[in-house]
């Protein structure tokens, strides 16, 4: 059986009349990259704040690494909130050191680790600069470093790539993958579905304060397949029998859905008789399609 780093059971959080989380259950397998998805206001941030013990749930339990989540566990969790920033008037190095020590790191270890990460991300020159002299992207790099500095078991990133140019976003993405390879579990919250597909292996979709989907990304994608094939032909005048339905045509590029009791082979057989096929593949729904469908069906 896979070990869970974090289990959230039946979490409820209300703000007055507004319910932010309504009996939410989440299980995160150790070492996974877990995508926490959902539209704005679904309750993702509230859930992440509860995991970080910034706020307390009204009811429900949190199990971290096999035991109930306790105050000391914050030293084992790293959190990069969506609303993040730094003290503008403070120097970069001094500030990073302060934040690392607040996480409970001893002075010398903190300095050593900061030097390592700063040179790794090529920002060692900024140590004595004030934060207000940095660009937004540069400040984001510093924030990334102070999130991972204490080598946490669980890392929580809320929209980690916002504010980065493509080059730096790629650098940060590679660092996240590297951390994952070394055994760190990562919770990753974003609206950018293409990065979810690239990085995550598990997801949970939260909508209207409830979990609507959860599981390994491959399984979810499988569940959302709808027997549609993407076919490219030489000609653009395809006529098919009633067993199949053409959903969309762009020139010689067709989206064809199978009806009941037909298989991909049936479609191929029919096509081969009359047409010259250039390409033929099953259309797997993208995370974006799944996201939109799941949210709309709610």
């Amino acid at each position: 059986m896979q070990k869970h780093i974090l289990i959230a059971k039946d979490i409820v959080k209300k703000y007055g009349n507004h319910t932010a989380l309504n009996h939410v259950n989440i299980e995160i397998i150790e070492g996974s990259i877990f995508g926490l998805l959902g539209p704005n206001g679904a309750g993702k941030t509230t859930l992440m704040r509860i995991i970080n013990q910034i706020i307390a749930p009204d009811s429900g339990r949190l199990i971290f690494d096999g035991n109930p989540l306790k105050r000391e566990d914050i030293a084992k969790i790293g959190y990069l909130p969506e609303e993040r920033g730094l003290y503008k008037k403070m120097k970069v190095g001094e500030q990073a050191l302060y934040l690392a020590k607040l996480k409970g790191m001893p002075h010398h270890e903190a300095i050593e680790k900061l030097k390592y990460w700063f040179s790794r991300l090529d920002i060692l020159d900024w140590w004595h600069k004030k934060v207000e002299e940095l660009s937004k992207g540069m400040a984001q790099k510093v924030q990334f470093v102070v999130t991972v500095i204490h080598n946490p078991k669980l890392l929580i990133f809320d929209e980690p790539f916002s504010g980065f140019d493509p080059i730096n976003a790629a650098i940060i993405r590679n660092e996240i993958l590297e951390l994952s390879k070394n055994g760190t579990t990562i919770i990753f919250s974003t609206h950018r579905m293409e990065s979810v597909e690239e990085i995550c292996n598990h997801i949970a979709l939260i909508n209207n304060a409830e979990t609507v989907l959860q599981g390994p990304i491959e399984k979810i994608k499988n569940d959302f397949r709808n027997n549609t094939f993407s076919v490219k032909l030489k000609a653009d005048n395809l006529i098919l029998s009633n067993n199949f339905k053409i959903l969309d045509q762009q020139g010689n590029h067709y989206q064809i859905q199978l009806k009941e009791n037909t298989t991909a082979n049936d479609l191929l057989n029919e096509l081969i008789k009359n047409e010259e096929i250039i390409s033929f593949e099953e259309k797997i729904p993208s995370m974006e399609d799944i996201f939109i469908k799941a949210v709309k069906d709610e």
């Binding site: 914050i74 959190y79 990069l80 993040r84 920033g85 607040l102 102070v146």
Partner: peptide, 17 residues
Amino acid sequence: EEKTSRIVEVIISSVKP
């Protein structure tokens, strides 16, 4: 200042408000 610079959430993930 802590609120507008958005550092506050970073800090209170380490210490209690």
